[in-house]
Design a protein around this nucleic acid. Structure first.
Lengths: 341, 341
DNA sequence: TATGATAATACAAACGTTTGCATTTTTTTA
DNA sequence: TAAAAAAATGCAAACGTTTGTATTATCATA
């Protein structure tokens, strides 16, 4: 005894009216008489009617779903952005379909293509470090599917709005803070070189050093290669253990690098901030808990998510294809001073 | 010049064959001649055909989407479970639609109902602490939609498989470990009393204490009320500051409670583990980084996600409604010993 | 070379909505 | 009270697939 779903037809039959009227009644279309509308609502309720979203979508060409592609789940930054997206999206009656590209360009492409099957109204994407060419994104946009990018954008794509923070500027400020508080020998711990955000953060570091006439020493620079938490630990460990002369400050490009650095330093017996100062990037909650608490560049991740969603939904509502000019939104960061500096 | 999507009809027209044949050809149905199949594939490729998933879903009654409802995003445990779900789901050609109930029963219900509109093939849910009654879930199941629950399950729902860990047993072991290493005055820091997992973890604590004839002192027990990171900090702070006589160990019910506790202890000048030992619950990465590193009950979150997804997909493939007997899967935890004990 | 068997293809209904237009009913007006 | 105007409803096509059954084309057989 498989129970069949109630559909408009069932309500129509029971009330001896047409499907069209039922549909309009439920829509509160003024073209149907209040009294019939009432009847329809009551019967729908009584019969346990639930509209079929798929049929609706087919008919209307809208699914009210936003596809989100992030490089990985286990990075609080991305989750926080998703939370922001979700927040804005729900308010505007959209749901989010999340998938991870697992730091792989191929996966990113596949995910994108799968979304092209019409299951989402638009796409929010943060490119992986592997993403060098943006033709897959251009192709999607060419098909009229709205796209918004955030973070780590290497290439300008016309038609793709994007949201980012000024990584170089943020780093510059942080490093300058270190210099202003008397640090001279400042090390850099960054991430994989292929990733634009890390390039920019590195640039900020270099610029600040040069602007203050401090020599940049290769031996004080680490670009972590790993994409995995454990290996990051090892890399940082080795880096710090093999330094010829010790730095008096370390600027790191993520919260996690910062924490791992602090951990290693403490284990090696250094005092923070007396011997070494440390700065992290992101400020997603952990820096505050660590002892000593960590000075961080605070990135407005939640807001970034909201903004990204806002731009996308704007695109939905724009007159189609009025050769959409790309919008770029830059969000402000803030240096949050804590005990580590 | 809005570009229209290529559909089966376009291919059919171009090749002068019927839509049905095109559909079957793309399906590699043996009923179509190899030579036409080839032609169809070539033309489809050339015209840039992309199947319309919505139309497919309407026709087939399957969306290949799994709906996931978690109480909150900013809890690494839930994200890790989602990652597990996603992992298993993708392998089986399902995508996941995530939403947060924001710790509210009302939101949970709304989300559930919105999924009832046929946009998902099945639902994975972790109930909020507010969820006392399970009629909304029963109702969904009654409509033939597969549901699997995980974590924090207060009530047995026939037809709803679920996956959990034995919270009481895990806590028992942890507290026993403290006792065995000579701790006597053991404090408890738990979460909101309404949440089943916290009830169970508290029970484990009580049982272990009683089994070892240690008196349970109310003054050493804290049930945090807040659902927000910041307030947790304050609560724990106050609790620890106002203790008449200090404990020599603190068992905490989440990683975050553990870390906040350690932070506060260190700030108050206590040495860990010499003066006080601390244990956390979850082991989602942070406990290892903190100095001193934190002993934790490791919860297999990723595996939990995989298992949950597996159970759901199993339900999809089962002969419908053979009055499905509920399956309960219990996953093992492990006590990971580190510097804090 | 007609005849049946088999292979290949086409037709049309179905999935559950929405919506432009036609039709019917009700109300207003002269 | 008949005609015109307005309101309410109904019909049927459309959204892009899948799939059971009917039809046509091809082939082997006698």
């Amino acid at each position: 005894m498989k129970k069949r779903r109630v559909k408009l037809e069932d309500i129509a039959r029971k009330l001896n009216i047409s499907i069209a009227t039922v549909s309009r009644a439920l829509d509160k279309n003024p073209r149907v008489k209040p009294s019939t509308r009432e009847k329809v609502f009551k019967t729908a309720e009584a019969m346990g009617y639930m509209p079929n979203q798929i049929a609706k979508s087919l008919s209307s060409g809208k699914t009210n779903i936003i596809g989100v592609i992030i490089p990985r789940y286990d990075e609080p930054f991305f989750i926080e952005v998703c939370r922001g997206i979700d927040h804005y999206a729900r308010e505007h009656n959209y749901k989010i379909l999340i998938s991870s590209s697992r730091n792989s360009f191929e996966f990113e492409r596949e995910n994108l293509i799968s979304y092209e099957r019409g299951i989402v109204d638009g796409i929010i994407l943060s490119p992986t470090h592997e993403t060098e060419t943006f033709t897959h994104i251009r192709s999607i946009i060419g098909k009229g599917i709205p796209v918004v990018l955030f973070d780590n954008i290497k290439e300008e794509v016309s038609g793709a709005d994007h949201v980012l923070i000024e990584d170089d500027k943020a780093s510059y400020e942080a490093v300058e803070h270190l210099i202003k508080t008397g640090r001279k020998r400042i090390a850099f711990v960054g991430g994989i070189k292929e990733k634009k955000v890390f390039q920019d953060r590195f640039k900020g570091y270099l610029d600040a050093m040069q602007a203050n006439q401090i020599e940049v020493l290769d031996e004080l620079i680490l670009h972590c290669k790993s994409l995995d938490r454990e290996f990051e630990d090892t890399e940082i460990n080795e880096f710090l253990s093999n330094l010829p002369e010790f730095p008096d400050a370390i600027f790191t490009c993520t919260d996690n690098y910062g924490l791992l650095t602090m951990k290693t330093l403490l284990k090696m017996g250094y005092r923070i901030p007396d011997d070494v100062a440390v700065i992290g990037f992101g400020d997603l909650g952990l820096g505050e808990v660590f002892v000593p608490s960590m000075t961080c560049i605070a990135q407005p991740s939640f807001e970034m998510g909201q903004k990204v969603a806002e731009l996308l939904i704007q695109q939905f509502n724009e007159p189609v294809d009025k050769n959409h000019r790309k919008k770029v939104v830059k969000l402000k960061t803030e240096l949050v001073l804590r005990d580590s500096t």
